[in-house]
Simulated scan of single mutants.
Amino acid sequence: MSEPLRLAIASKGAYEEATLRFLEGAGLSVWRPNPRQYVGRLSGIDGIEVLFQRTADIVQQVATGGADLGITGYDLVAELAGDDPEVLVVMEDLGFRRCELVLAVPESWLDVTTIADLADLAVEWKRRGRTLRVATKFPNLTREFLLRNGVHYFTLVEGHGALEVAPALGYADLIADLTETGVTLRENRLRVLEGGVILSAQACLIASRKSLCHASEKLERARIVIELIEARLRSRRYRLITANIRGHDEEDVVRHVTAHVATTGELGPTVARVYPKSGDTRSGWYEVTIIVPAHLLLEAVDHLRLAGSTGITVTSPDYVFDSRSFAFERLCRALEEGA
């Protein structure tokens, strides 16, 4: 029996719930014997184990080869892996758990509204013998961002628990922390600096160069996971429209439909003759099926109405597969380059 592919995901809390929902939506339902066990599997797919880990530990597991694939926050990957060649980002944006790593200062700092103001303040405090203190759980990203933006005089304070209270408690002057809505920052009388977004992040899929390089069976199982996720994400961008249109013939219907960019479809519309229940084959009704980008849906519907369409129905595809998996191809190229 060959070694299974190991997929590491969050072990608890909102991140675990969101990841499980995402995987189930992609046709990758996770089976876990009980909440206290840290190894599960993908239902209906042989040879793939699911490892339940802390989100921060997932990056380390992938880096060392303890896990072959992992789903965790891009913020953690950027902070903990950096330029580590053993951690490959397969898909940077899985579409859930969006957040931003930001610099936030007390609302009472009326004269400090931009990152440039913060740089000036750091210089002024330096002259007075005082150092700007920044509380954060992301020291690498925060240090790099501050230096890149001209803030050279500061001390990073390792954060534990809720960082929003750090300025009020006096052990830091400002914070660099994750926020989704900004509500918690405002409740603690903090505000984000203009130009103070260090990183925009979300859940991402990463892979281990160490464990997948020269492991053809594991790589094939990885392709299954990547293909299904990629096709599921692509499907969110499209809608499938079906409508009945009267016309002299198929070419006449095609001319009506393709007269607007919203209804041209991916390669073009599919047109099929409708055989009415009345049995009158001279009626000239045709069924048109097109795939349209989601943001052009109403434009497409309006144009079909102008063309005399009836019975317009819209559905969302579960998957949209391309001619090949671009994400998997990128992974294979990265593995070859590092071989």
Rank of each mutant, 00 (worst) to 15 (best):
P4D: 09
V192T: 10
D318Q: 15
V165M: 09
A231Y: 02
T264Y: 02
G73P: 01
A339W: 14
E86P: 00
S208W: 09
P33N: 13
L110V: 08
C99R: 11
L5Y: 03
D57M: 06
R234W: 13
L156H: 04
A135W: 07
E220F: 04
I198T: 00
D120G: 01
P293K: 08
C204K: 00
L103H: 04
G129Q: 08
L94T: 06
L233A: 05
D83E: 13
P33D: 12
L103P: 05
T131Q: 08
E158V: 07
A56R: 15
E180R: 15
S43C: 10
I226D: 04
E124L: 13
I290Q: 08
A203Y: 00
G40L: 08
V39Q: 11
V271M: 06
V183L: 13
P293W: 05
P167R: 03
E100A: 15
M91A: 07
R127M: 09
V192M: 05
K218S: 06
E16I: 01
R324N: 12
P293Q: 04
L267S: 14
F328C: 06
G150I: 00
N188P: 07
R189K: 13
Q202M: 13
T136N: 08
V292L: 13
V254R: 14
G268F: 09
S316C: 15
L101F: 08
F154T: 05
E337P: 00
E49R: 08
P269D: 04
Y15N: 06
E266P: 01
F138Q: 02
R237Q: 12
A78V: 05
R236N: 10
L199N: 00
R282H: 06
L88H: 02
D46W: 00
A104C: 09
G265E: 06
E79A: 07
T313S: 11
E220N: 12
F145A: 04
R221H: 05
A176V: 14
Y275S: 13
R232M: 08
G73R: 06
V288K: 06
Q202V: 12
R237K: 11
G247A: 12
